[in-house]
């Protein structure tokens, strides 16, 4: 008798207890603390949260691109396609970036080098990781430019970034990112700087490429509308903490953490009256003033005594894969 154990596919990206420090005025602060999540192949996970909550730092920690000397991963693990990348020597990391894991950024206007032709910039990835040069590289660049739907690519391959619109530049960035068919794509607000129609086109493009290549996508955004349309899971961050993580439909139906609930209420919706908007009072505390315990306590409507202790991330939305970091509704929380 054979015992058939269903093999669970390993995640393309697994972040476990990631704590990233930033050195500000000589003191190390935990700007990301104990963040964990997984992204499966072909899956899109959305990372959301207010400005300054550590979303980009999380992505930069995964890419090994933290600012030299003032930023470093203090503890935890990040595996990309099963390979541990935390603590990898820079030379080895270079071999993975743009190859196994790629990233696209918010600012298409400044993210391309203004003095190098776009074709050359795309080809650099191919040369670095696939050893392509000369005519072979050029042919592959043209194929990639067509793949990201840049019109008249043969004529535009030697043009410079300033000759492209924002949307087209973001396509160039995407062509660069997917050139070596990475397992993981980190997209840090790639559509925030684009107008709405271009935004939709770029989102579609990413989804198409993802369907073809089977990449895992970690999509960082402020736009909950985008989250609802592309992601299967949501990870909500606040002050460097993951405060809630849930399947996307569950998240929109039953946001459990007071911050998530407040976040959803602060978003304009067509089916609600505009005066039902409730902005979250106050601001995210800076890294210097971060309270111990729950970091949302200073702005939370439900704050309790126990909130000075850091709540654990535990199931709390009804489903086991819906977790939140809050004392509310827990026996220890007294409610």
């Amino acid at each position: 008798m054979t015992n058939v154990v269903p093999l669970k596919t390993p995640p393309a990206l697994a972040v476990k207890d990631l704590t990233t420090g930033l050195k500000i005025r000589g003191i190390w602060h935990q700007a990301v603390r104990g963040v964990s999540f997984e992204v499966m192949p072909r899956e899109t996970v959305a990372l959301v949260g207010e400005s300054g909550c550590g979303k980009s730092l999380t992505a930069m920690s995964i890419m090994g691109l933290l600012p030299a000397k003032v930023g470093k991963v203090l503890s935890g693990s990040v595996t990309v396609d099963g390979r541990e990348v935390v603590g990898l020597p820079e030379r080895e990391f270079e071999g993975l970036r743009g190859n196994l894991v790629s990233m696209i950024f918010q600012e298409p206007m400044t993210s391309l080098n203004p003095v190098l032709p776009v074709g050359f910039q795309i080809a650099e990835t191919l040369r670095r990781h696939r050893g392509l040069d000369g005519a072979a590289a050029r042919a592959e660049v043209l194929r990639l430019m067509n793949r990201v739907q840049i019109p008249a690519s043969a004529r535009r391959i030697d043009d410079y970034p300033h000759q492209f619109s924002g949307g087209m530049r973001q396509r160039v960035m995407i062509a660069m990112a997917v050139a070596c068919r990475p397992k993981v794509l980190l997209a840090d607000e790639p559509t925030t700087a684009l107008d709405v129609t271009i935004q939709a086109q770029v989102l579609n493009l990413i989804a198409e490429l993802q369907a073809e290549d089977g990449m895992a996508v970690l999509f960082i955004t402020h736009n909950l509308g985008v989250v609802a349309s592309i992601a299967s899971r949501v990870v909500v961050m606040y002050g460097g903490d993951v405060v809630e993580t849930a399947p996307v439909d569950d998240f929109f139906q039953r946001p459990s953490h007071p911050y998530s609930a407040a976040l959803l209420k602060s978003v304009p919706r067509a089916d609600r009256r505009p005066d039902s908007l409730e902005p979250i009072p106050g601001q995210v505390p800076t890294l210097f003033q971060m309270p111990d315990g729950c970091r949302f306590q200073s702005r939370c409507a439900h704050v309790m005594e126990v909130c000075t202790r850091r709540p654990p991330l535990l199931p709390g939305g009804g489903r086991p894969d819906h977790q939140m970091r809050c004392w509310l509704g827990r026996p220890e929380g007294g409610l």
Binding site: M63, L65, E90, E94, G95, L96, R97, G98, N99, S102, M103, F105, E107, T110, S111, L112, N113, P114, V115, L116, E124, T125, R128, H129, M173, M176, A177
Partner: peptide
């Protein structure tokens, strides 16, 4: 500049990031 971050994100070796991407500008 942002394009330096992009170059590093592509895996461009540090030497080229400095002498090609940054110096050209």
């Amino acid at each position: 500049e942002d394009y330096i971050r992009t170059a590093r994100a592509k895996g461009v070796p540090a030497r080229l990031v400095v002498w090609r991407h940054a110096l050209r500008n």
